[in-house]
């Protein structure tokens, strides 16, 4: 049963395929602690006074892990979106063929 049209489902497929690839990779990069992505970790102030270096490192590490997980969660959601859009696409194709 098609809910969204052929264009919408195609768009969904493309964005979710892209999202799965990019977010999984970004998750991996966060997991191994890539410096390039450090700027986007929540709750970490780079400038200003940092009281304890060890505490800072600990906060950074947990932030990296959390963001890696978040990326994978989003990737998983895109996996679901991909399955849904693919089904929609298939349903659309079928319905257009049967008519």
């Amino acid at each position: 049963m098609p809910i969204c049209g052929p264009k919408c489902s195609l768009c969904g497929i493309i964005i979710s395929a892209w999202g799965i690839i990019q977010l999984t990779l970004m998750g991996v990069f966060y997991y191994i602690g890539a410096v390039a992505l450090a700027e986007d970790i929540p709750g970490v102030e780079f400038s200003g006074d940092i009281k304890d270096l060890n505490q800072f490192y600990a906060k950074m590490d947990s932030g990296f892990q959390q963001n890696a997980l978040n990326c994978w969660i989003a990737a998983l959601l895109y996996l679901i979106t991909l399955a849904f859009s693919a089904h929609q696409f298939w349903a659309n194709n079928r319905s257009s063929l049967s008519v």
Binding site: G19, D40, I41, P42, Q66, L69, N70, L77, Y78
Partner: peptide, 26 residues
């Protein structure tokens, strides 16, 4: 855009990222 999605703390960050990524991608 995308950074806003990454900077949401905790578990909701995953869902925020999911939405914002689509916006960023388009």
């Amino acid at each position: 855009v995308l950074s806003k999605g990454l900077q949401v703390e905790g578990w909701p960050g995953g869902i925020a990222l999911y939405v914002i990524f689509a916006f960023w991608a388009s």
